[in-house]
Computed example of a mutant assay.
Amino acid sequence: MTKRFEEAMRMMRHRDPQMQEDGFGVLEPHAAEHLDELIEAFREEQDRGLRAWLFELIAAARDSKALPLLVQHLVDDDLRGYAVHGLVVLDTKEARTALYRDRANGED
């Protein structure tokens, strides 16, 4: 894990809401650089709120490595919006196909 990622995660777990926001802000512009770390942290995290933030950062990375995770969470009520957004901004053939299938199945 990189020092930036470790520090941002420490901040995001802090009790102070502003510190949490600041930690998110540290990672947001660098989400693509930390995608593997974000995915690993997302899979291990138990806190629902932090998982949502991690997933939001994964979607913001705009990297096709995130495609399977984004598609998997199209059915997750808590993360669906981030999954849809992530697929829209990814804008690959595979992402568009996943969104088309999702809509065809009666979702948004």
Score class of each variant (00 low, 15 high):
residue 20 Q to K: 15
residue 108 D to G: 14
residue 78 D to W: 09
residue 34 H to L: 01
residue 85 H to A: 13
residue 78 D to A: 14
residue 59 A to E: 06
residue 40 E to M: 07
residue 43 R to T: 01
residue 30 H to I: 06
residue 27 L to E: 03
residue 89 V to Y: 08
residue 25 G to K: 10
residue 30 H to R: 15
residue 35 L to M: 10
residue 20 Q to M: 10
residue 59 A to H: 05
residue 3 K to W: 04
residue 98 A to S: 06
residue 93 K to W: 05
residue 70 L to T: 07
residue 37 E to A: 09
residue 10 R to L: 14
residue 63 D to E: 02
residue 75 V to E: 14
residue 71 V to Y: 07
residue 4 R to Y: 01
residue 46 Q to R: 14
residue 13 R to S: 12
residue 57 L to V: 01
residue 91 D to L: 01
residue 75 V to M: 07
residue 13 R to I: 05
residue 32 A to I: 07
residue 74 L to A: 01
residue 7 E to H: 13
residue 8 A to L: 10
residue 104 A to N: 08
residue 23 G to Q: 05
residue 57 L to I: 03
residue 76 D to S: 14
residue 81 G to Q: 01
residue 44 E to Y: 01
residue 97 T to S: 11
residue 61 A to M: 06
residue 99 L to N: 04
residue 99 L to A: 07
residue 75 V to I: 07
residue 11 M to Y: 06
residue 89 V to Q: 15
residue 101 R to N: 09
residue 19 M to V: 14
residue 27 L to I: 05
residue 58 I to G: 06
residue 55 F to T: 00
residue 103 R to W: 13
residue 3 K to Y: 06
residue 51 R to W: 03
residue 11 M to N: 05
residue 98 A to Q: 09
residue 96 R to S: 07
residue 61 A to Q: 00
residue 98 A to K: 06
residue 83 A to H: 08
residue 1 M to R: 05
residue 18 Q to S: 10
residue 31 A to M: 02
residue 40 E to Y: 03
residue 77 D to R: 11
residue 11 M to C: 04
residue 43 R to N: 15
residue 69 L to H: 06
residue 66 A to N: 03
residue 83 A to L: 07
residue 108 D to N: 11
residue 68 P to A: 00
residue 22 D to R: 14
residue 64 S to D: 15
residue 49 G to M: 12
residue 51 R to G: 06
residue 22 D to N: 09
residue 81 G to A: 02
residue 42 F to H: 10
residue 74 L to P: 02
residue 20 Q to H: 11
residue 70 L to I: 04
residue 54 L to R: 01
residue 4 R to F: 08
residue 66 A to I: 01
residue 17 P to W: 03
residue 43 R to S: 13
residue 33 E to K: 15
residue 44 E to S: 12
residue 39 I to F: 00
residue 23 G to M: 04
residue 64 S to C: 06
residue 74 L to W: 03
residue 92 T to D: 08
residue 99 L to S: 01
residue 14 H to M: 04
residue 20 Q to F: 04
residue 40 E to K: 15
residue 49 G to F: 13
residue 100 Y to R: 15
residue 18 Q to A: 12
residue 103 R to A: 14
residue 58 I to N: 02
residue 44 E to I: 05
residue 48 R to V: 12
residue 102 D to F: 15
residue 108 D to Y: 12
residue 94 E to L: 04
residue 80 R to L: 01
residue 52 A to G: 15
residue 66 A to T: 02
residue 59 A to L: 07
residue 20 Q to G: 04
residue 11 M to P: 00
residue 1 M to V: 06
residue 104 A to F: 09
residue 44 E to H: 10
residue 19 M to K: 14
residue 16 D to T: 04
residue 67 L to F: 07
residue 70 L to E: 11
residue 100 Y to V: 08
residue 33 E to M: 13
residue 48 R to G: 08
residue 45 E to L: 11
residue 49 G to V: 12
residue 20 Q to W: 03
residue 9 M to P: 07
residue 99 L to I: 03
residue 2 T to Q: 08
